[in-house]
Write a protein that binds this DNA or RNA. Structure first.
Length: 268
DNA sequence: ATGGTAGGTACCCTA
């Protein structure tokens, strides 16, 4: 089963790219972030036509928004509200026994970017990001034991490892790579024993990026990327990981998102 | 040290 995640930066604008990606890479489940559209205006018909009959979404006007598109039916779906806001950043679905023995939960996450200043006393968006991480960590700990089949994907807006950014030293004070955020993400990863599925395939001393800023004239020349998008699986799924595909070339497609799609193939 | 680009919306916010 192929599970992919992609921060699409407006689902309506990127429909041609979604068509190109799904037809060439055929994910069974595609999780999107930053759909930027209310549920009533979501492009259901176009996605149904691409083979994604089962769609779970939570969107709002202009900002954020998450979606799970699937070729397989869901047993149940959930919307999760974090830190007292309804800002459309966390949904999940459950697959039944016929698809995965003992069932499986898949979470689609869009962790707050956190603004520019990595100091919560002057930047409340950074405070929101830290609180979001704490609350989500607590929620996963309260909800799951490490023996469950769980997948968490999405735009985490944090590049935790030194080789997840183009310059560890130069980004230590840049939101997405500051020690306080990395600490919280690592604490969450350790809590119920999440496996970083991308680093399962790419050695930690190798550069690995999923995002390149729009604010570079030529993203290929400077290659100042960051690994902001992640796929985590719980321990029982580690041995099921078959392959990883980071579609770097999608950053050069016409009218691209600043993030590229990431996919793992699970042997179920 | 600064400003660079993109999307959605409504003349500014977020990334």
């Amino acid at each position: 089963m192929k599970i992919a995640t992609w921060n699409i930066n407006s689902v309506r604008l990127r429909m041609p790219l979604i068509e190109k990606y799904t037809q060439s890479h055929a994910p069974d489940i595609l999780c999107l972030q930053e759909t930027k559209v209310i549920d009533e205006l979501f492009p259901y018909d176009a996605l149904h036509a691409l083979g994604y009959e089962h769609i779970h979404i939570h969107g709002m006007k202009s900002y954020n928004g998450v979606a799970i598109l699937s070729k397989m039916p869901f047993r149940s779906t959930e919307v999760h509200h974090r830190v007292g806001k309804e800002d459309c950043r966390h949904i999940s679905i459950n697959l039944d026994d016929s698809i995965c023995k003992n069932g499986m939960d898949i979470h689609c996450l869009y962790i707050p970017a956190g603004g520019d200043e990595p100091d919560r006393t002057v930047n409340e968006k950074f405070g929101h990001k830290l609180d979001f991480l704490d609350e989500m960590n607590r929620w996963f700990q309260d909800t799951y034991t490490p023996d469950r089949n769980v997948v968490a994907v999405g735009d985490f807006n944090i590049a935790p490892l030194e080789q997840d950014v183009w310059s560890h030293k130069q980004l230590l004070k840049v939101v997405s790579h500051t020690p306080v955020e990395v600490e919280k993400l690592t604490a969450m990863q350790d809590s119920i024993g999440w496996v970083d599925a991308m680093r399962h395939f790419v050695p930690e001393d190798e550069k690995c990026y999923t995002w390149w800023s729009y604010r570079n004239r030529d993203w290929t020349k400077s290659n100042r990327g960051r690994r902001l998008d992640h796929i985590w699986v719980t321990e029982p799924l580690r041995d099921r990981l078959k392959s990883l595909d980071i579609l770097t070339e999608a950053r050069s497609w016409e009218k691209p998102s600043d993030h590229v799609p990431v996919m793992v193939d699970l042997d179920l």
